[in-house]
Design a protein around this nucleic acid. Sequence first.
DNA 1: TGTTCTAAGTTAATCGATTAACTTATCATT
DNA 2: AATGATAAGTTAATCGATTAACTTAGAACA
Lengths: 355, 355
Amino acid sequence: MKSNKNVRIKDVAEKAEVSTATVSHVINGNKYVSEKIKNKVNKVLKELNYHPNSAARSLRSTKTNTIGFIIPINSEDTAKSFFMSIAEGIEEKLKSRGYNLILSNSKEDPEQELNLIKMFNTQVDGLILAPTNENFKGINETIDHNFQIVMIDRLPVGYKGDYVLVDNFQGTYEGINELIKSGFKKIGFLSSGLGITTSNDKFEVNEELSNNRIYVNPNNERFQAYKVALSDNKISFNPDYVLFGESSFQSGYDLAKQLISKEIDAIFIANNIMTMGSIKFIQEQKLKIPDDIGIIGYDNSDWTEIISPPLSAIKQPAFEIGVQAAELILNKIQKPTSDFQHIKLKTENLKRSSY
Amino acid sequence: MKSNKNVRIKDVAEKAEVSTATVSHVINGNKYVSEKIKNKVNKVLKELNYHPNSAARSLRSTKTNTIGFIIPINSEDTAKSFFMSIAEGIEEKLKSRGYNLILSNSKEDPEQELNLIKMFNTQVDGLILAPTNENFKGINETIDHNFQIVMIDRLPVGYKGDYVLVDNFQGTYEGINELIKSGFKKIGFLSSGLGITTSNDKFEVNEELSNNRIYVNPNNERFQAYKVALSDNKISFNPDYVLFGESSFQSGYDLAKQLISKEIDAIFIANNIMTMGSIKFIQEQKLKIPDDIGIIGYDNSDWTEIISPPLSAIKQPAFEIGVQAAELILNKIQKPTSDFQHIKLKTENLKRSSY
DNA sequence: TGTTCTAAGTTAATCGATTAACTTATCATT
DNA sequence: AATGATAAGTTAATCGATTAACTTAGAACA
């Protein structure tokens, strides 16, 4: 907290005995300035410790140099660390290009999400969104400013723009396959909701996913992959082995209880916090992993390798999602095009000792 | 992405047949406007879906309505979830008062931290900082704009301003006490660094902490509390039982190994990721918790209750830190005073089955 | 020498909202 | 009826950086 008065471009200009335009040209390098003057200005710039006023800059240039990021986190969610990693990735990339990151939380509430988007309208040049609204129409309508959007992690119905997703299908498919290879046959599937589209027929045709006629929620894809993997291994799909619940520890605990009462021999758990609940139940029942029951969790967490036995898990490249999303949106801002980029990142199958 | 042209206050004024000043008065409510006109303006405001341009606002009012938050996170840090919770707390409070949160990461690098602060100079009205610079002097010198600061989690030497900390002393003191009550006598202490101030004499006098003549790193306080608790229980302090390392899984693993070779019967681990490493080692050695060795971890994580046995831990009120820090800084911005607020939040002692 | 070009700067309008200072209408008071 | 006070709006300056349009000195060329 020093001088109350800020150094303006005008102060620099006066001290360097040039016009404000010249100072601006030196700073932004978009017009040729002679070496001599350039040096003089740079010297004064340093002497006065000048920093451009970003509000003025934004106002004039209609660029905010800021990217918004809306995460969807409920209080006790383990997704915290997942989204934090994404945020780190975004921030890292943005910083290197002189952009700022504004962070906000929709708390998985579609209405709050819309409010945030509204807030962001004049404040950001681009928005990275892990959407909770299942329909893009609503989102699109609240966007009245011109900014770029990149969706991550999930995709609302009717969205045709850029996105960075994880290949949920591949990871799950491989996981189920591995489970089967290890001799498990009655494989349960535990997940949190699929979104409003709960009727099953929606999930029968896989192409619908890519055609984006339904809400692409990671759980959808994982469920799809589960079914396809079973089918590819000539194991018939048993709806009794599939349970959906809310994304919570308790729900994981309860559903594991239900599922295990059905004499399954393995579980694929499509959600981190539910995995924790499930494991708690299994431990309480003194069931042996993997002898009594095999387990794969989605996605990986820091705790997965210190429980006993270490948990096999599908790991998502969270940081990389952030980096790619940021890269993508910055490029779009620099040169807006109407051809959309669709990025799908591979997951990693961490085989440990739970199957 | 609709109209390319933004709705300006002038557009609203024209359509409502009043002056821009009146529109502004209606929006901000800082001058009396008759009900009739107010209604008319509000109607147009809605019709045109007007949103004030924040750059223009900032420029004129010299308020950015933005708070910066700098976290210090290394790649594999479990502190991710801790700081994410804090960020949520901050964001929640800010949102309710119409402020934005800019997030950035110093990665525990003092130089990067300074750069970020420099960046923030003209961009924020206030800064919430989990400092990695151990000296406030450097930080203070890079601040040339007038903004409020609130420190959280740690305190650099020479800092006299506002802060929100956790009472690391109390939580640790209680934890060690409990350990002793449960019959443990040879209690090891594992921690990551104390900062540059590694020589021991600095920690002998507890008042120095409150006088802030040294860098207040949570680890310092925890170490202090460990020593005082031992002493209060007439247990002599054995330097061999104290090990410092870097904050990593591997280091936790290695130091636990070292410590356990010294025939201790319990460990207090002052750091989350090191706790994980330590537990890994203990599990590998097939040591029984708490029979062979008692454990308390600092701080709590989501995994602590699903390992076996569930881990006793000291839990920090992360979300609350964020809320309080935000509240504090917003109040300071609204009416700057020179009397500083020093908030210390209590931790919670989660007794589970590891001692 | 006169004309045209170019290089290197400068002038001043502009972005959109806020707000001090001003105007005008209305009403109360003597 | 004259004066003053107040209420309700308006005018226009202002915040700081950018940039299109302009100026001017000097070079290049016939």
